[in-house]
Lab assay of single mutants.
Amino acid sequence: HNLTITQGKLFFHYNPKLCLSEIHKMEEVSGTKGRQERNDIALKTNGDQASCENELLKFSYIRTSFDKILLRWEPYWPPDFRDLLGFMLFYKEAPYQNVTEFDGQDACGSNSWTVVDIDPPLRSNDPKSQNHPGWLMRGLKPWTQYAIFVKTLVTFSDERRTYGAKSDIIYVQTDATNPSVPLDPISVSNSSSQIILKWKPPSDPNGNITHYLVFWERQAEDSELFELDYCLKGLKLPSRTWSPPFESEDSQKHNQSEYEDSAGECCSCPKTDSQILKELEESSFRKTFEDYLHNVVFVPRKTSSGTGAEDPRPSRKRRSLGDVGNVTVAVPTVAAFPNTSSTSVPTSPEEHRPFEKVVNKESLVISGLRHFTGYRIELQACNQDTPEERCSVAAYVSARTMPEAKADDIVGPVTHEIFENNVVHLMWQEPKEPNGLIVLYEVSYRRYGDEELHLCVSRKHFALERGCRLRGLSPGNYSVRIRATSLAGNGSWTEPTYFYVTDYLDVPSNIA
């Protein structure tokens, strides 16, 4: 807008934040220059609390790290170098490059900038070799853009010569660093050979998330399962459950009422301010606690030095998902009996873990797994792929695949051998790939016309006998059925096997 004052003059007093240069501009645009008398524009009460600059400061050096910015700028000295009290560095987070010096300023003089007072450097006698002032900004957020400017702080001049310097606002972004852990990993099994893994992005990506790394490792069953005799009275049979499938998407929606109208769909109840505040506090606490764990609990591995020492970490090797089922080394339970199943799973520490690289999504279907087997899954978020990966501390989750139908069934015939004193040795093959492992066998036998009897055969007993022995049988026709019990439950009964026990007292003698 054009402003013209045809008559009258300007009068400025007691404006401590208004620089004289701005008042002189007002004289020019209003056409009143030359009308004012000496005392109409006070030299001592206008701009006496402001830094009124008329020179431009330029930054000469900028260096960044993930949490620091090192700045240096060209030296500046007023005509009387004693008038320079120091520099004021202003900075704040700036997602967009549209910041002005006066953003967030209120009537009390406060604003949204963080201000650092910096002492002037030592003055050199040689004007050509003056030290460049600077400042190291610490405690910054990774991968965050900051708006920065600097200006001088000078003393009051009796001659009211307006001098000083100020830089333009520059924008500097800190470097990326390792992201925080992925949030809320959930693993479920939808079949006997697959596990579905879902997660949420890290709360602090500290860069642009480029991919996720998912490692999985087959877990050995508890050692007590191999040692305890679950045929003993009072000892509860062990059981394991597989990871249940995901709930429906509708039930997972946030901010939804727990109660549904019987007449149909209901609208979600909005969260109160107290609920939102509580969630923010919980989120802040979780982030602080995660940072504490990362800094205190997890110790970084030592990389190899120039002395030739090897990095103890196993090298990563990509495998196809079809090879995942046989990740671990199978060892027989008892070496003397080769027909026992290889369900003991000690994992070799030198073995390469299978892994998958996930790009542009937060889910993965891990296939080719062994049925009813526990897996430990390790999830890392990465925001750099080359020249070397920059990934987060791992988040861990466990899951067990679903049982395989008929995996616990005894394959092959049940054979028998009759000894003296009416002892019958029953023999059968253990299931080759049971659900988890076989903890015991149930032997059901009966003599024709009598009630059915049951015998429990422990895992250890089966390994020693290759089956079991029935003792003290009365003469007669017998039928026997056997079924295995694994961590997933009972298998199917075998087809009945028949044998006849004679009275050993009636056996004919070869003595003449």
Rank of each mutant, 00 (worst) to 15 (best):
S239H: 10
H425L: 09
N295P: 00
D506Q: 09
T497Q: 07
G322V: 06
Y375L: 12
S509T: 06
T340P: 11
D385I: 07
C231F: 01
G264Y: 14
R318I: 12
F226E: 08
N206T: 01
L213T: 04
C456E: 01
D409Q: 09
Q219A: 11
G472V: 12
A399F: 02
H254I: 13
A394W: 12
C468H: 07
S398Q: 04
F215A: 07
N435V: 01
P245H: 11
P354C: 10
D291F: 01
C468F: 09
P332A: 10
D250P: 07
L426D: 01
D222S: 07
S315N: 10
L232E: 06
H294M: 10
P496Y: 08
F226Y: 12
G325S: 10
C231Q: 01
V397N: 13
I209L: 10
V423W: 11
F246D: 08
D291I: 04
V397R: 14
S248L: 12
P312F: 07
V457P: 00
V457W: 08
D450W: 09
N422L: 10
E362T: 12
P403Y: 03
G368A: 10
R313C: 14
E362W: 10
P245R: 05
L440C: 04
C468K: 12
K460F: 06
H211M: 04
Y441P: 01
R390A: 08
P238G: 05
N206G: 05
D311T: 07
D408R: 00
I438T: 13
E451F: 14
L470Y: 01
Q219M: 03
T502C: 07
R400H: 09
S367C: 10
V297W: 02
V345A: 12
N477S: 08
R447T: 11
V423H: 02
V297Y: 03
Y500R: 12
F246A: 06
F285T: 02
V501T: 07
P270Y: 08
F289G: 02
G368V: 10
A395G: 11
S248P: 12
S239K: 15
A395F: 05
S474C: 15
A220I: 11
C456Q: 01
L228M: 06
E420D: 12
P244V: 06
L455A: 09
W216G: 14
V457H: 03
Q252T: 15
Y375R: 01
E362H: 15
E362V: 11
W493L: 06
G412W: 06
L277C: 01
L293Q: 03
N383Q: 07
V334M: 13
L364M: 14
R313P: 12
N435H: 11
